[in-house]
Design a protein around this nucleic acid. Sequence first.
RNA 1: GGUCCGGUAGCUCAGCUGGAUAGAGCAUCAGCCUUCUAAGCUGGGGGUCAUUGGUUCGAAUCCAAUCCGGAUCACCA
Length: 599
Amino acid sequence: MTLANKIKDAAFDALSNLYPETTFDKSIINVNETKPEFTGNYTIVLFPFVKLLRQKPDVLGNSMGEYLLNNSDLFSRYDIVSGFLNMTLKESILYSYLLNNFCNSDFNKPYRADDKVMVEYSSPNTNKPLHFGHLRNIFLGAAVSEILRADGKHVVKANLINDRGIHICKSMIAWMHYAEGATPQSSGIKGDHLVGDYYVKFNDVYKEQVAKMVAEGIEEKLAEKSAPIMQDAQDLLRKWEAGDEEVRHLWATMNGWVYDGFDISYKKLGITFDKVYHESETYLLGKQLVEEGLSKGVLFKKEDGSVWIDLKEDGLDEKLLLRGDGTSVYITQDLGTARLKYNDFHINQSVYVIADEQNYHIQVLKLILKKLGEPCADGIYHLSYGMVELPTGKMKSREGTVVDADDMVNEMIALSKEQTEQSGKTEGFSEEELSWLYETIGLGALKFYLLRVDPKKKMIFNPKDSIDLHGFTATFIQYAHARICSILRKEGIPTTPSSNLFASFIPNQELLKLEKEVILLTEQYPDILSAASSEFNPSAVCNYAFTLAQLFNTFYDAHSISKAENEEKKQLRLMIVVHVAAILRHSMGLLGIRMPEKM
RNA sequence: GGUCCGGUAGCUCAGCUGGAUAGAGCAUCAGCCUUCUAAGCUGGGGGUCAUUGGUUCGAAUCCAAUCCGGAUCACCA
């Protein structure tokens, strides 16, 4: 348990014993870090009790302060400043935390096999390459998975690939008409990009055809429906659904190209999945649920045979679940997939990493599952994130107004190469080490850039502004880590000292202000992890890691480690920095960011 | 129109289960490398926390209304 929580418990204990006739709710106890201008480490806010006990803050604070000094072994003094009880921790508490934890590099909570959660993310369409918006989704999903795992949960990372539908047929038909048999091998173009090019091509041709028809006096809506290339695509979809061998073969071939391309991208990004679902295998599953819902009377049929659910009671509308011709709609598939996921892994929580434009969709999905009595309904959590937009508006693949993911990654690696060379610290690196370093810095900066912001906030990315490698960045944290590694290479890794050495040392050697601050900040790490996990929020980890790196840099600048005042002090500081490095590595590891030892 | 999300320094964002004088980074200005990695550190300037009202000992934080921006409310996926 962290100190802040121990102090909360101690305060609760104090109140309960001092005022046994009153019952307290623990939530009224507010423990904060003490503001730097006051004496103390943690502050207990007295106002909430003042009202409840009808006592003056000073009287209350004094009796609590006295009680805590006498009955808890955490504190060495207390001060009361206008309603705030500032508690100063004993030095020995900080020393013992440090000595017991400095060589600990495992910050994960104990594994709980029965606490199963699935995180679905990435979930790309197979008609175009990944773009910058997908990267936010992918990094969020991967980071949240690792954070939940560190919190002790059994995590299944899932990818639901949207590999069928009219949009896939669009790139197929354009390829058939215009590619002249081009393949990734023959063209030298990465498979996902090649297919994406024909998706764009489809759209160009389609727009041209519609414009021409409108010029010929055909109504725009009719033209959009009956443009020849659109007719071809729809024809292709019908053939696909009928299982036409030739169509299925081309479909499999082109999807194969895309998967090869995705694999390259995922590998470069360091992204993996435990389970991959394909929509072509799951899109029919929802019909079973619809049948069951009809027999339960939860759903109803209209005259044309279409199936609906009435959500008016819940402030929503009627929602279609099955078309009159018996085919599924988007949400029907999701119903089936939700059940499939649940049955496959017996998960008690299912996280959907999906952009906020689908908030309504997921809300409806969860509601319908609940009405159908599906056990998976309660565990559904929508990790809704804001879209990444350009200054000109939304990214649209079919318009070609996207920042391509592969391009972005390459640019970041090039940028980190340029800056590393500029700093002139590449001496002694082999070629492989250098390219590893460039990737580590470039990818780290990219991931951090997308993860440091609260997920629900919309991001606007201007391709003209390059992503910074200074300030609130992964590079900053990596640099702090590399500095620590450099010290450890020279001074060696600290070992646990014999107890009698420190028995004489500790009482006589006061910790400096910055030493205390660093120790106290490291001590808070478990609480940060818990909060990040329960809020599904990697940005909390970003903020913490940056703050820690920043404090380390201040410490590093103010106090020499190799030239410490004495040997004990040196060992002590080595313990502090080795602990900082371990936390930086662990926290960045959760975000999928590697930490160089030299840079 | 209904629902949901956002509005904090020139820019990008923390802080939001109410707590002390609202914090970072970028940009800008002034300093700091013969001393553990200057991708760093120290300091300065920069704020009507969208607006108004309410609750409270105390509001950026909670409530209400208003304004601005966005998403969504498809027999598209």
